[in-house]
Design a binder for these strands. Structure first.
Lengths: 338, 338
DNA sequence: TCAAATCAGTAAACCGTTTTACTAAGCTTA
DNA sequence: TAAGCTTAGTAAAACGGTTTACTGATTTGA
């Protein structure tokens, strides 16, 4: 590139002594019909000039970028970071490049995403941000027709492609496990605001209690901020109750519970049995290892991508909901009540 | 949007009974000169048609998108996730939107990034991926003139804007702290391949040992994969040596060391003093709290963004290197050798 | 009072690709 | 040998904005 002039396809064409059309065709692998000699000339000119087609020009005319957006609520939450990674692993081999948008509580972010998506940047959208989703979904589905797949939410009204886990059953199973160990006074650490999927999960917890002819004790429900700091806080309150087990809404929170109990010189599982949800990879590095309900995160990534690509290629096909199985993973953080 | 026709600026213009130029100017906030009435008409037409300017068209002509790329090596590493967040927090208020690209060991990713950046998608680039950087930097700086800021690397040959910490001094200080506690046999957990910044850090370690007239013992250097799994592995080997302290290359690895020692029923700090590097936020939730060298992550984010914006606005200004201070953070994972 | 300046608005060029529809030359084939 | 088909390549029209340079009407100023 000489001076300030950006290298364009025209430069390549003139350097190769050939028309712009031909260059474009060859560079896009649609030039079977051209002679080997011509192709050679084009490729040579391209490398010599180090030419890269302009992203915007190409997007403008071709209407086909290969980037898909992944909206997650918080990049610091290992579950979502890991979901982002699993989407990446599923999408790249199929020729799509995920772009991760972390909302992180930024109002500006949501506006920006909407603008991006509405203005056609992404070929498709994966929404894993339960909070922000409604706004985005409303805005986008009414006007633009961006292909979308939802995950980690359970609002049944939404008629869209979705990859979910059975929240209720999962909640039930893990609570049941705790109860099967003989615990009767179980503390819960849940966020201030329950998103739809969490409401279901909670219903599951309740069902388990019913099975054991028990009731969840209102005064053992602790609302705390999502994330480990909430767990620490909650632990301080829990030790003042008669609880013997703690169900944290996710592993991230459970990690905070660990810390809180440690600070207060309580032992896990001797003093308190603790369970989480998600099975984030960090789990492996906790001591004692955490009993949790494992989400099939890689499979979620795969299915989400599969659904999205299908929707992109086949816009009018029927919407699908895929429910994946969770799995109880028993660690050393739980023990029978003595 | 009726039928399949995408709503364009021309639709808005004709609906408002006004020229395209006027609409564009007004929508871009450059329409002071127009009457309130006209502005009103434009905005009304815009909302009624739910018009969003096409991202590509705009990018093509304006050459000014407001998105900046942030390349990190691994989204699952809390330090980099957190760096991404801090960049976001610094950039958004200034009207820039960071897009995080996690390399995650994907060769395809690097190619894709280069293509993206070379084709002008991003207005600027923040490179925090020591490994991938060289390739990207080489490719981009020779040909395209993408404004770039580097961080988390210390290759002095690169003539670019950089935000660094003094790796050598930081390494020296933390090693010195360990030695000041009386430890003489210190194990190191470092990655297989040392990037430039880590080489410097290691030099710092050595300097501290020299001060104490000691030498780093070769057989106490353990090479392991980056990330917690490496820490676990290393711990298993370390317990078979006479080491009494462990210096992990970062907190992520230190977390693995914790787990490994726990598995082997070793106590921290009674049996082993352990230190890390970075001060990731997860640290707060480890027990015992980790002694580490804190990187000023928020400040790094701020400075990186400041430098980048300056470079974008002022392309020919002199390149700057900013060195930020780290801080020794003493936790409960270290104690005097008895 | 008339030239100059301001005002409100617009036509048209341009950004760098892709793609459609065309052409001219050479080759079949009957 | 002429009509038709390939072959190898191209000209020009999009795509949907932004921006420059212009215009005609009104106001100002001396």
């Amino acid at each position: 590139m000489k001076g300030n002039h950006k290298t364009t396809i025209r430069d390549v064409a003139s350097k190769a002594g050939i028309s712009v059309t031909t260059v474009s065709l060859i560079l896009n692998g649609k030039g079977e019909r051209f002679s080997e000699e011509t192709k050679e000339k084009v490729h040579k000119a391209q490398t010599e000039l180090d030419y890269y087609p302009d992203y915007y020009a190409r997007g403008l005319v071709g209407q086909r970028t290969n980037s898909i957006g992944v909206v997650i609520p918080d990049i610091m939450n290992p579950f979502f970071a890991s979901l982002g990674l699993s989407v990446e692993q599923a999408a790249i081999p199929k020729g799509y490049f995920p772009q991760i948008f972390s909302v992180n509580g930024f109002k500006e972010n949501i506006d920006y995403f909407i603008e991006q998506f509405a203005s056609g940047t992404q070929k498709g959208l994966i929404l894993a941000a339960p909070g922000a989703s409604k706004e985005i979904v409303d805005k986008l589905s009414t006007h633009n027709n961006v292909p979308m797949v939802l995950t980690d939410q359970a609002d049944l009204n939404i008629n869209d492609d979705r990859v979910l886990i059975d929240e209720e059953e999962s909640g039930e199973k893990i609570a049941e496990y705790i109860l099967s160990l003989g615990h009767k006074h179980v503390a819960f650490v849940i966020p201030e605001m329950l998103t739809m999927n969490l409401v279901k999960r909670f219903t599951g917890y309740e069902k388990a209690f019913e099975k054991y002819s028990l009731k969840i004790e209102k005064e053992l429900i602790f609302k705390a901020t999502f994330g480990p700091e909430g767990g620490v806080e909650a632990a301080h309150k829990i030790v003042q109750t008669n609880a013997t087990a703690i169900i944290a809404i996710n592993d991230d929170v459970a990690m905070g519970v660990y810390k809180g109990l440690n600070l207060l010189n309580k032992r896990i599982p001797e003093d308190y049995s603790v369970v989480g949800f998600d099975d984030i990879s960090l789990n492996k590095y906790l001591t004692p290892s955490l009993t949790t309900m494992a989400q099939p995160i890689n499979e979620i990534g795969e299915q989400v991508v599969r659904l999205l690509i299908n929707r992109i290629k086949n816009p009018s096909s029927a919407k699908k909901t895929i429910i994946l199985n969770t799995k109880l993973k028993i660690g050393d953080s739980t023990q029978e009540l003595i």
